[in-house]
């Protein structure tokens, strides 16, 4: 009888777990389920693809950043990632070298001040500066984008149901609308977006960027790379987290095994 109870208890815990999972799926009802892609960062041993991160940053810089800010990131982050020096071999970031980052930052103009005369002034960017936002404020962003606000992309992968798969689906989801769909003014047809009408025009086109490493810049390739970059931006500690997690679990497994053996041995005395 006790056995039987135990089994029911276990089964109900499993059901409980499934309920949690399904409870999280609220809100995705109107859009098509994102197709799971094969990401290098998936799974407990997942890592970022350094080259894809660099290409992804290029896509962000040359395409996305025309409208989308990434206010939580600094140029310095483009090196090794959190806790790593630029160019560090063990890094978890895009891995640009310190010189590359300095040059990159300097190519942007940053508003600074007030200076000792009380005036604001423009200066070239430094590695410690945040990414320069395309618009001064929300109103400017909306007025330039037909009333729609391009969201900040710093944590966008974590802020959307479906995460990386969803963003990939959205970037590759632009299709010719079916005949019975009437689009609103300035709207675009996208099968991944809730309601299928999105204010953002198709951002990626074949060969819209030229990759320095010779990778062919198809829409899928660009989407894949920029999503890789955005996932890193949202979760810069992912690789450290995975590495530490493996060690912690191995430690705990051994330790818990020993505790179990100890428990068995001590409880043998109870009769």
């Amino acid at each position: 009888m006790r056995q039987w109870n135990w089994k029911i208890g276990f089964a109900s815990l499993t059901v409980l777990g499934l309920v949690f999972l399904s409870a999280q799926r609220v809100g995705a009802a109107e859009s098509t389920e994102p197709v799971p892609q094969d990401w290098s960062f998936d799974g407990p041993f997942g890592k970022f693809d350094r080259a894809a991160l660099q290409r992804g940053y290029q896509v962000y810089k040359e395409v996305c950043s025309a409208c989308h800010s990434m206010n939580l990131l600094s140029f310095r982050n483009l090196g090794g990632g959190a806790g790593f020096a630029a160019g560090d071999e063990e890094s978890s970031g895009p891995g640009f070298s310190a010189e590359q980052i300095k040059a990159l930052a300097a190519s942007f103009t940053v508003k600074d001040g007030p200076n000792d005369q009380g005036e604001f002034f423009d200066r070239p960017g430094r590695a410690s500066d945040r990414f320069v936002a395309p618009f001064a404020n929300e109103q400017a962003a909306r007025s330039a984008n037909n009333g729609a606000l391009p969201p900040d992309l710093s944590v966008i992968v974590k802020a959307r149901e479906g995460g990386a798969d969803y963003i990939y689906g959205l970037l590759t989801g632009y299709k010719t609308p079916p005949a019975d769909v009437i689009l609103g003014a300035g709207m675009n047809y996208n099968i991944a977006f809730a309601g299928q009408q999105i204010a953002m025009a198709q951002p990626l086109n074949d060969n819209g960027v030229t990759f320095a490493d010779g990778t062919k810049a198809s829409v899928e390739q660009q989407a894949h790379d920029v999503v890789q970059f955005l996932t890193w931006a949202a979760e810069p500690n992912l690789e450290t987290r995975h590495r530490m997690g493996i060690s912690v679990l191995i430690y705990l497994a051994v330790f818990t095994g020993l505790l179990y053996a100890l428990k068995r041995r001590i409880w043998k005395r109870v009769r």
Binding site: L252, F255, T256, L259, Y260, L262, K263, I266, W267
Partner: peptide, 8 residues
Amino acid sequence: VKDLFGLG
């Protein structure tokens, strides 16, 4: 010891 094992 039993609680510690459960904690593990």
